[in-house]
Computed example of a mutant assay.
Amino acid sequence: MLSSFANDDDNTLPSPRLSCYKQPMSVAKLPKLTPIEIGWRSDPHLPVIPLAMEVRQAGCAAPHAHPRGQLIYASRGVMRVVSGTEVLVVPPSQAVWVPPDVEHEVYFPGEVSLRNLFLERGVSGRLPDQCTILKVSPLLRELILKAVTIGESYLPESAGYRLMTVLIDELCQAEPTELRLPMGHDERLQRAIEKMVADPGAVETIEALASVACTTPRTLARLFVRETGLTFGAWKKRLILQEAIERLASGQNVTTVAFDLGYQSLSAFIEMFRQSLGASPGQYLKDTPPM
């Protein structure tokens, strides 16, 4: 039986992107947001165009890209950003940077206070050239919230303009964080991932997943590293972290989340969370009401 997998590594077939990873409800049933035209506006006198929105259980009408770079920040609530074969789950302590011309989709499983910053292409070049999750410091948060109160009604050399330049400088210094979840293209890998995503708390061995993927454990382990840059164990831990963040943000208590996600003790779950993200679950999701 194993001989039929001898050349598995040469059998990489392109497949469609995993459909938006996993949503709390069918993506088809989510209300669709009207496309935001600000991202296409070109005006060097407006290096930053802020936009505030209140969103509840909605998503993009379609994958899209625009000439301006976009910082997507939820001052309240959790959002999910899909770009290429990567999924990024983002709590209020972080934001997603989307460079110009990079296709992406955004979904909001609950109530979200959304604060967007659209950056002129020349300014965007100072930030990463790929989708990146950035930590939002207290200062950066306050600058973002102040910027959306100013909107686009500022002139060059005005106080509002100077605040936007300080905001850009602070944004360029924001520390990246690793909560991206790469999906990969290989069909065998995607079959294994779909199994894990369906029940993140299941104790899946790589041997069991290899059977689902119609490959060998050794090949599946190599596919995880080659396609996602993560080992099987590291990918599984990141899936659990993303799932935990969404569940905790929706109001579930830490104990329920820990046991649902396969942990035998609350202390083990909290320690894993702290070691991975630098804070306990309660500290990580701590937030203040938006301005």
Rank of each mutant, 00 (worst) to 15 (best):
L2W: 10
F5M: 01
F5P: 00
D8E: 13
D10R: 13
D10F: 15
N11K: 11
L13F: 11
S15V: 08
R17N: 11
S19C: 06
C20G: 06
C20H: 12
Y21E: 12
K22Q: 12
Q23T: 15
M25G: 15
S26E: 11
V27T: 09
T34D: 09
P35V: 06
P35T: 13
W40T: 13
R41Q: 14
R41H: 13
D43G: 03
I49H: 06
A52S: 10
V55W: 06
Q57K: 15
A62N: 03
A65V: 11
R68E: 02
R68I: 00
L71T: 12
V78Q: 07
S83A: 10
V90Y: 06
P91V: 06
W97L: 00
D101A: 13
V102L: 04
E103G: 04
Y107L: 08
G110E: 14
E111T: 14
N116I: 03
L117K: 04
L117N: 07
L119W: 09
E120S: 05
E120A: 08
R121K: 08
S124K: 09
D129P: 00
D129W: 00
Q130D: 10
C131E: 11
L134Y: 11
K135I: 11
K135W: 08
L139P: 03
R141D: 13
K146G: 10
A147N: 08
T149Q: 12
E152Y: 10
Y154Q: 02
M164N: 07
M164S: 04
E170S: 03
A174T: 04
P176G: 01
R180I: 03
G184H: 00
H185G: 04
H185I: 07
L189E: 04
R191A: 14
I193C: 04
V197I: 13
P200R: 00
P200F: 00
G201K: 00
T205Y: 11
T205M: 04
A208I: 09
A210R: 04
A210K: 05
C214Y: 14
R218F: 12
F224V: 02
V225R: 13
V225P: 07
T228R: 01
G233N: 15
W235N: 03
R238F: 01
R238L: 01
L239S: 01
L239C: 01
Q242S: 11
A244Q: 05
S250W: 05
Q252F: 10
N253D: 15
T255M: 05
T255C: 08
D260M: 06
L261Q: 07
L261T: 07
Q264H: 08
Q264M: 03
L266C: 12
S267P: 05
A268G: 10
F269E: 03
I270L: 01
F273V: 04
Q275K: 07
S276A: 12
A279I: 01
A279S: 09
S280G: 08
P281F: 02
P281W: 08
K286F: 11
P289Y: 02
